[in-house]
């Protein structure tokens, strides 16, 4: 499976991951090599095999909706890169 430059660029955009030209070329080569090796999975017959998402069987986990103490606004904002009037400040979404 050879990845094209355009594909790497598209994937990086989906992941909102900025990449330099040099990174893009390096990852293209490395990931092509990795995916080529993963072709081995095609040899496995998985017809009628259900997928496993978690190694333990999980039912929906629910709890009572009870009020309990939470973090304060200042505790949560303490790590915020930018804040204003007790809120996270973000860039304009619509321009």
């Amino acid at each position: 499976m050879k990845l094209s430059r355009e594909e790497v660029k598209h994937i990086a955009l989906l992941a909102r991951l900025g990449l330099s030209e040099e990174e893009m070329e390096r990852f293209r080569g490395q990931l092509s090599n990795i995916l080529e090796n993963f072709e081995v999975l095609k040899q496995v017959d998985t017809s009628d095999v259900p997928p496993t998402a978690y190694p333990i069987s999980l039912e929906n986990v629910v709890r009572e909706d009870e009020a309990a103490p939470s973090f304060t606004q200042s505790e949560i904002l303490a790590n915020a890169p930018r804040q204003e009037e007790g809120c996270f400040r973000v860039r304009a979404v619509l321009e």
Partner: peptide
């Protein structure tokens, strides 16, 4: 991140991610 995004992206999900999850069962 790139490998994971690729494995989950439209057109490759069945061949990579879902296949891997089935092999996980085996």
């Amino acid at each position: 991140i790139i490998l994971g995004t690729y494995a989950l992206s439209a057109g490759y999900y069945d061949a990579y991610y879902l296949k891997a999850q089935k092999v996980r069962t085996l």
